[in-house]
Structures are given as structure tokens and as C-alpha cells.
Design a protein around this nucleic acid. Structure first.
Length: 426
RNA sequence: GGUGGGAUACCUAAGUGGCCAAAGGGAGCCGGCUGUAAACCGGUUGCGCAAGCUUCGGAGGUUCGAAUCCUUCUCCCACCA
């Protein structure tokens, strides 16, 4: 009983390109096995990967069976798509460890429990590593035209570049990913590959290979890459990438990233990153237009996505922390509340005795990592960007003493609007 | 293996003996206005309160003085074979 998933994806803006105009109808009529590959070059997925995980899940909810492919084999080679420079090669052990982490993230979103549209997870190292070079060249390589491969954007740009070339290793990457598709077709009757729009080329090669070798019709569907307006990188936030791994991006940071999304992009993000329905999203967009200061859309977005990735409990913690940190005075919080709110903020310890003569605020800022030098620390203070327990402090020579502590031992430092740090004196 | 080009701060990119702690742009950061938005405006981005100190791929040298000249090493790229 597949639903009209294609129209749903269309409405969400999640369709960048499809290899066949008939795909929508097919998806509504028959159950598909589909796959998406995940690159294990880092030990966590980021928001781009999340879109794909959600894509698999959406398909699953519509009655199709997803396969999550860990690129343990392709990761050894490196995908040149969208890269202007050669990748550095990773060790198999590192890849294995990364895959274990990514697998956990995948299991949060996609349902692997037995059922009609059960998902499975495989590692393409299983079939790529045992390949024999000569067999591969005869059976697979024969179907690829170098003329065509060279014409590809990702390859051509590297060939034309004065600074960068492309190694044979990366050049052959597309053969491997194409082979993945063929393999999954043979083993699981997988006939659809989804991915980011940068994967279009790789996907179409796979489809072609399946047609040539197996004489069968396969499909591809890509989603747009998330991008900020004006070309800014949107998968990124303050301090780099937004990861799904809580150890790399805390749930609070994760939540905050969505709270801080541009107004102009909130609607898109609600469609991309949540399962909220059309009506609900349009209502939130209405609120954004009518009462932007309420930030209803941002809050709903942040809450939904954080819940998906980190669970409801973590999402609510992040929500509480955000309210406390940006709303009421933290000086009014009880001790356990205070600690909970700042649980995700960086923190440090300091001997209580060091307060006897008072400790220069400048030094504390440096120790807390909120300033990199005494000079910048002074600039921050002088510029009005430093807060002690959420109260602005502009005296460059300010010293911190016993009287500044909350509950007799805590000090909340803040630089700028969003950077908090908890110092415990004990 | 040969020839040529290159390595400057977070990125990009000027600078080719003193006026260089090093232009410009991007990006970041702080502030203002707002709504933890955008746009815009102001400030800022080696260390030091300062005198001054340490930087221009690494090492060594020439010079009163080097990012700039010389030697050498490492790495990168292109072309040829």
C-alpha cells in the first residue's frame, strides 16, 4: 500500500533530479528496494547525511525497503565529486571505527526491525574488497567509456585545474559506486538509488551499468544540497560542521543551530528535516510572517530535529537550557537547574583558594577559552561583549571575588551573545 | 627521469632589500539596530598594558638591515618522456 511518496517529496522540495519522469508513478504502484550510500570518511554524519537518512525513512514509511550502504570499500578510494582537491586516503581500521559510529546514527532514524519494509544495513567493503582486478576490469571496466568519464564535471574541473590534478584512484571511483548499485540489484533487487545532487553522476553510471549488464531498468533520485543563501555553507554552524554525534556537536549546540537558521530558510528546513505535515508547516510559516519575534517556526524546527537525532529528553533539555540562557536571569536558578542548563556548555574547574585576592577577569576568560589572549580578552570586555552571570561587565581591570559566585561556587562567563562557560570553584 | 611553475596569516591573494606585523577580498569574532533572523553600520583578527618581541614551507648564509638576494632540503602542481 505505498502512498504517493513522490508528490510528498516534491512538495518538500526534496527532489532535485529524477532519472525517469515515470518514477513517481512507479513508486506509487510497486514496492521498491532502494539504497543510499554513506561516506565513512568522518566518524559521524552531518546534516547532509541526515537528509538522506530521513529520505530513506520517508521511503520506508511509504512502504518501500531501504538499504543503508556504508562505504567501507569506496571510502578506501575517495569520491572526487564536489571536491576540488585530492582526498587523503584513510586506513581500513579508521573506516571501520567510523562505520560503527555512523551505523548507530542510522539506526536512530531508519527502522531495522523485521517487517514488510524492513531496512538493512550493509558495508560495500564486503563485495568490493574481494574483487579481483582483472575480473573487475573485464566485467565492469569494459562498460565504461573513458571519453565519457573525462567529460564529467567533477573530473573535468580537476583536469583543467592548474593547481590540482586527479589521481587514477579517484578517477575510478565512479566505477566502484556503479558496481555497488549493480551488486545490490543482483542481491536485493534494489532498483533505486537516492543521494544528494552531487551524486547524480555516480548514480546515473550505476543505472547504465545495470542496464548493460543485467538488462534491467533502475532509477535515481537526488535531493538538493543544503545551502545557505548567498552561498554560505549551511550544514555548518559556529565552530564548524554540525554533526549528528552528540560528542562532536552537543544536543544543545545542535538545537541552537536550528534556532539560528535564517528566517528565509526556516520553511525549507521544516520541510527537509522534519516529518511535520503540510498544514502544520504552513501554519508555522504564517506565524513567522505575522509574529516573527515569537520564533515559533524556529522553535518547532529545532525541537523536531533535535528529537529525531537525540531523542525527546535531550531536545527538552536543550530547550530548557536555551530559555534559561537567553531568557530569565540565571542568577535566579536553583543549583541543580543551573548545572543542568549549562550541562552542554564548556566548563572548567579552579581552586577556591585562588579567589582570596581576587582573580582578574581577563585571566578567567583566557582559561575558559573565551579569549585567546589577554589583548583580545580586554577588547571583548571593553567592547561590551563580556558578561559575568549574564550581567555585562565593561571594566577591563575587573577582578572576580567570592561575592560573584552563584551558590558559593559557580561563575557563569559569557562572551558575545552565545558563548557560555561555567567555572566551578572547589 | 627531464623541464617549468609554486609554497605568505583562517582561506584567497598582493608584496621581489629598509616606508612590512605584512595591501585587498572573503570568512570569523565583538558591538549597535532587531527577534538568539536578514540587511545595514562601527570595531577587530600574531603576542605584549607598553617598550618591544616572534612570524611569510624547513635549515643555513650574504647584508647595517631580508617575506624579498644566495645555498640547500621538504612538499605541491603542470607539461614532456
Amino acid at each position: 500500500m505505498p502512498q504517493d511518496i513522490y508528490r510528498e517529496l516534491q512538495w518538500r522540495g526534496l527532489i532535485h533530479q529524477a532519472t525517469d519522469p515515470e518514477l513517481g508513478r512507479r513508486l506509487a504502484q510497486e514496492q521498491f528496494v532502494l539504497y543510499c550510500g554513506f561516506d565513512p570518511t568522518a566518524d559521524s554524519l552531518h546534516l547532509g547525511g541526515l537528509i538522506q537518512l530521513l529520505g530513506l525513512r520517508r521511503m520506508q514509511l511509504a512502504g518501500h525497503s531501504p538499504i543503508a550502504v556504508m562505504g567501507g570499500g569506496t571510502g578506501l578510494i575517495g569520491d572526487p565529486s564536489g571536491r576540488e582537491s585530492e582526498r587523503s586516503l584513510l586506513d581500513p581500521e579508521v573506516l571501520e571505527a567510523n562505520i560503527a559510529d555512523i551505523r548507530r546514527q542510522t539506526e536512530r532514524i531508519v527502522d531495522f526491525s523485521p517487517g514488510a519494509s524492513q531496512a538493512i544495513l550493509v558495508n560495500n567493503a564486503e563485495w568490493l574488497r574481494p574483487l579481483k582486478l582483472t575480473d573487475f576490469l573485464r566485467d565492469i571496466g569494459k562498460h565504461f567509456s573513458v571519453n565519457q568519464m573525462v567529460a564529467r564535471d567533477s573530473v573535468r574541473s580537476r583536469l583543467e585545474s592548474r593547481e590540482q590534478g586527479i589521481s587514477f584512484t579517484e578517477f575510478t571511483y565512479m566505477l566502484l559506486q556503479s558496481y555497488d548499485f549493480l551488486h545490490l540489484y543482483n542481491q536485493h533487487n534494489c532498483r533505486l538509488q537516492i543521494g544528494g545532487s552531487d551524486q547524480w553522476g555516480n548514480i546515473t553510471y550505476g543505472i547504465e551499468l545495470i542496464r548493460k549488464v543485467a538488462g534491467a531498468e533502475a532509477y535515481g533520485l537526488t535531493s538538493p544540497l543544503i545551502e545557505g543563501l548567498g552561498g554560505a555553507k549551511m550544514g555548518k554552524s559556529v565552530g564548524g560542521n554540525v554533526w549528528l554525534d552528540p560528542a562532536k556537536t552537543s544536543p544543545y549546540r545542535f538545537y541552537q543551530h536550528f534556532i539560528n537558521v535564517d528566517d528565509a530558510q526556516v520553511g525549507q528546513f521544516l520541510r527537509f528535516f522534519t516529518f511535520l505535515g503540510k498544514e502544520e508547516i504552513e501554519q508555522l510559516e504564517g506565524s513567522l510572517r505575522g509574529a516573527p519575534q515569537r520564533r515559533d517556526a524556529h522553535r518547532a524546527l529545532a525541537r523536531e530535529v533535535t528529537t529525531l537525532v537525540h531523542g525527546l529528553e535531550e531536545a527538552e533539555r536543550a530547550e530548557r537550557a536555551s530559555q534559561a540562557l537567553f531568557g530569565k536571569q540565571i542568577t535566579e536558578l536553583a543549583e541543580p537547574e543551573l548545572l543542568d542548563v549549562l550541562a552542554d556548555a564548556p566548563s572548567s574547574r579552579r581552586p577556591h583558594s585562588s579567589l582570596a585576592q581576587g582573580t582578574p577577569l581577563v585571566d578567567l576568560l583566557i582559561e575558559a577559552g573565551l579569549a585567546t589572549s589577554r589583548k583580545t580578552a580586554r577588547e571583548f570586555i571593553g567592547g561590551g561583549g563580556v558578561y559575568i552571570n549574564n550581567t555585562k561587565e565593561t571594566d577591563v581591570d575587573r577582578s572576580v571575588g567570592e561575592g560573584d559566585l552563584l551558590h558559593g561556587r559557580y561563575l557563569v562567563l559569557r562572551r558575545g551573545k552565545k558563548n557560555h562557560h561555567l567555572v566551578s570553584f572547589g
